[in-house]
């Protein structure tokens, strides 16, 4: 018995095509691959970053530097939430981020607070020349004045809904789904 409705927004092929397009956009904005750094936000941003980096390598012949960013310690709601969340790995590529073009990669942009935390954290690491925000899905519902620069899919959602990005490494398949609460049964 499910009390949720799941609707497929992007199947595997669609996700791959979208990522390929996003990779091209990233390269356009960055200008040069050498100055580019992709940072995936834990956890699924990391898998997406892997794929984007691979796409860029396929298209340009050079793989951009990449790393991972865990924003747990920078969350603005850290003390309010229940048990302490597990803190994942933060690893920047050698050479750091000073003067480089950093692209923060995440699966979904919703309230914008994750991106804000990521910006705060990056400020403690150095001073990039430029920071872009890249997300696979923009589901609206912003609570802060933050806008992603590179977006795979835009979809209107309500507060009760959720957008799940599924990756093979963690979920067994590649897809994007919209999860809605079930309608009341009569």
């Amino acid at each position: 018995m499910t009390d949720q409705n799941r609707r497929l927004l992007l199947d595997e092929r669609a996700v791959e095509r979208t990522l390929a397009r996003m990779a091209r956009e990233i390269v356009e904005r960055a200008g040069s691959i050498e100055s580019l750094v992709l940072l995936g936000i834990q956890r699924r941003g990391v898998q997406l970053t892997e794929r984007l980096a691979a796409e860029i390598e396929r298209a340009e012949g050079v793989r951009p530097a990449s790393g991972t960013l865990d924003i747990t310690l920078y969350r603005d709601d850290l003390m309010a939430i229940g048990p302490r969340p597990v803190v994942g790995e933060t690893r920047l590529p050698s050479g750091g981020i000073d003067g480089r073009v950093v692209v923060i990669v995440d699966d979904v942009c919703y309230t914008g607070r994750t991106a804000r935390a990521a910006l705060d954290e990056l400020a403690d690491f150095g001073r990039p020349a430029r920071i872009y925000l890249c997300v696979l899905v923009d589901r609206g519902g912003r609570e802060l004045p933050i806008q992603p620069d590179i977006v795979g899919l835009t979809v209107e959602t309500t507060a009760g809904q959720r957008v799940d990005v599924l990756v093979p490494e963690l979920d067994g398949r590649l897809a994007v789904e919209l999860v809605s609460p079930a309608r009341e049964v009569e």
Binding site: L73, G88, E89, R91, E121, F125
Partner: peptide, 23 residues
Amino acid sequence: RAILDTAEPFKEISERAIKKVPV
């Protein structure tokens, strides 16, 4: 185990230029 696992990411903070998080 949770304490030991949590300590891992905190090691990395001590290697940053700015050794501070706002926790």
